[in-house]
Design a protein around this nucleic acid. Structure first.
Lengths: 131, 131
DNA sequence: ATGGTCATGCTAAATAATTAGCATGACCGA
DNA sequence: TCGGTCATGCTAATTATTTAGCATGACCAT
């Protein structure tokens, strides 16, 4: 896993890739609309071409237009993003990060969500005893 | 909270800010050493000057050299980074993100850490009942 | 006190990123 | 079938970023 998957992207490239990861897939027009401080359509297209050429995204044809998708799965991208976040902001501690998510003002978890998370913890405990 | 705090940085600027957030503070030489594909010392210095001018970092004097620090607290930077990560990779769900942290291959949590996290969840439940 | 080391600042050049312009082709409705 | 709309691709120019070079000053050891 190269670090350049994160650091190797220019600002616009990142913005576009973020949009694609949050939406799963999108047309050029949708991406343009979602871009902060949106440039011309041409500019967006050019970026998409570059991203594709670099191997970060691919496209499918949907009739007259293209649908763009990330080439690396959301799962994998997630994992590297989390890892990067851990080392940058949490001294590598997943526990602290998880706590910040539950505790943090950014989130209000429902009791259902708390239950789910509880289940994940219990599962982790169980797996631990099987070592 | 402007989005540009994230998207408004160039590649090198981000790399440097990440280093500063992960270490808390650093000298120019340390930052240079930590940079991926490190440029010249002069180049690193120039970036630091720009970041300072843009208001992202500041410096203190430690004898003959400067110590650079982020201007926005780690806490706040954390919060925006988490938020951004949630919307990009977890459909805004903090619960899913927390689960990924506990469950994910990126992390092996100790039972102590699991206990801590458990406590945070219990606390959240309790606060919920006080609504 | 002189030369080496290590820090700083500033500036200009090279490189990379971003942008818009224009050409082309498919399709649909008048 | 003609004209408008909306896609596409390619290319060149602008703008931003990144880079290294050089000057200066402090400090330490010879």
């Amino acid at each position: 896993m190269t670090d350049s998957s994160v650091t190797g992207l220019s600002r616009r490239e990142r913005q576009i890739l973020d949009i694609l990861y949050s939406r799963g897939k999108a047309t050029a027009a949708e991406i343009l609309a979602a871009l902060p401080d949106p440039p011309s359509y041409s500019a967006a297209r050019a970026l998409l071409r570059i991203l594709e050429q670099k191997g970060h995204i691919r496209h499918e044809s949907d009739g007259p237009r293209y649908i763009f998708l990330p080439k690396v799965s959301r799962q994998k991208a997630r994992a590297s993003a989390l890892k990067h976040m851990l080392t940058t902001f949490f001294d590598g501690s997943a526990a602290e990060a998880a706590a910040a998510l539950v505790d943090g003002s950014a989130a209000k978890l429902s009791s259902e969500e708390l239950d789910q998370l509880q289940a994940v913890i219990d599962k982790a405990r169980k797996e631990k005893s099987n070592d």
